[in-house]
């Protein structure tokens, strides 16, 4: 196979081109952080698929789109058409990957934090930037708006979910007991004085009591993010371990930066973060995060 002169090999190396089984055909991976896609972009993607590909699009498990069936000699043209319209190209390989997230507090009634906004901020800061390049292996990050953890933060190299600590304002409580029924953790029981008593050891800071309280007696004491590191899927799945709680949105970006630095310094080539943590120790990672 001869390389067309127009192909930008340097650009190819940054990833996004996935070789298909069929000879000389590639799928083109797009950069669609947090799975949020502009409807106009979707039309451009559709046109490019019909013009250069085989008319099929694949929705990836990380909220991405891959345009399938593009012949090698058309890759650059496809890329040029997409980029001219503002559609960005994704990445493969040992680097910071496109960030995923749920719609979060802006859209979802359960959302405690703006996970989508945070995901976009993380993507902007790390994707294709020196901090997120030349890593030992792939590096996946996600943001979940609440403890339902729909985008699976514990399965990512670094994952976050929203948290909210409730606080009772007894004067506003009418003793209805809805919070006791609502709490799935059994952390709230109604006392003899008809006021709820919270067991902090059982409370997981989901905020269900705040949302369900008819009189707004349960109020928000603080909101933040829990962070997990070292999660992965693949042939040896492992859940991420908690490395922090009630982290502010700004500090979440620094947590990612610190973990990336740790991974670059300690990780062996081809090793996912969880393996590095297993070798070097979770305490050592924690010691180097948030300093």
């Amino acid at each position: 196979m001869t390389l067309p002169k127009t192909i930008d090999l340097a650009a190819m190396k940054t990833g996004g081109f996935i070789k298909q089984k069929e000879k000389d055909f590639f799928a083109l991976r797009l950069r669609t952080p947090v799975g949020k896609i502009d409807a106009d972009h979707l039309e451009v993607i559709s046109k490019v698929s019909r013009k250069y590909g085989d008319g099929n699009l694949h929705l990836t498990v990380r909220q991405g789109i891959e345009i399938q069936g593009i012949p090698f000699e058309q890759l650059q043209n496809a890329r040029d058409d997409l980029e001219a319209a503002g559609v960005r190209i994704g990445a493969c390989g040992p680097r910071f990957r496109v960030v995923t997230a749920c719609p979060g507090a802006e859209i979802c009634p359960n959302g405690l934090v703006d996970s989508a906004g945070l995901g976009l901020a993380a993507d902007e800061r790390f994707y294709g930037q020196p901090e997120g390049l030349e890593l030992p292996h792939k590096f996946k990050v996600t943001f979940a708006g609440c403890l339902a953890c729909c985008p699976k933060p514990q399965e990512n190299d670094v994952g976050f979910h929203g948290l909210v600590e409730p606080e009772l304002f007894a004067d506003d409580c009418n003793g209805c007991g809805v919070c006791e029924v609502t709490c799935k953790e059994g952390a709230i029981v109604m006392g003899d004085d008809d006021l709820p008593i919270k067991d902090d050891a059982k409370c997981i800071d989901c905020g269900d009591c705040i949302k369900s309280c008819p009189t707004d007696a349960w109020k928000v004491k603080r909101v933040g993010l829990a962070a997990y590191a070292g999660g992965r899927w693949g042939r040896h799945p492992e859940l991420g371990q908690k490395i922090g709680e009630f982290i502010s949105p700004d500090d979440a970006m620094e947590v990612i930066a610190d973990v990336l630095r740790f991974y670059k310094e300690e990780g062996k080539r081809g090793e996912r973060l969880g393996v590095t943590i297993g070798r070097v120790g979770l305490d050592e990672l924690k010691r180097r995060v948030g300093k």
């Binding site: 009418n174 809805v178 609502t182 269900d208 369900s212 008819p214 009189t215």
Partner: peptide, 23 residues
């Protein structure tokens, strides 16, 4: 009991209505 009492008051509250009493 269960999901209904956990969910309905919350949704009614979100619609802007006032919950006067639950018992």
């Amino acid at each position: 009991d269960g999901d209904p009492i956990a969910n309905v008051p919350q949704s009614v509250k979100e619609e802007g209505h006032q919950i006067m009493k639950v018992g």
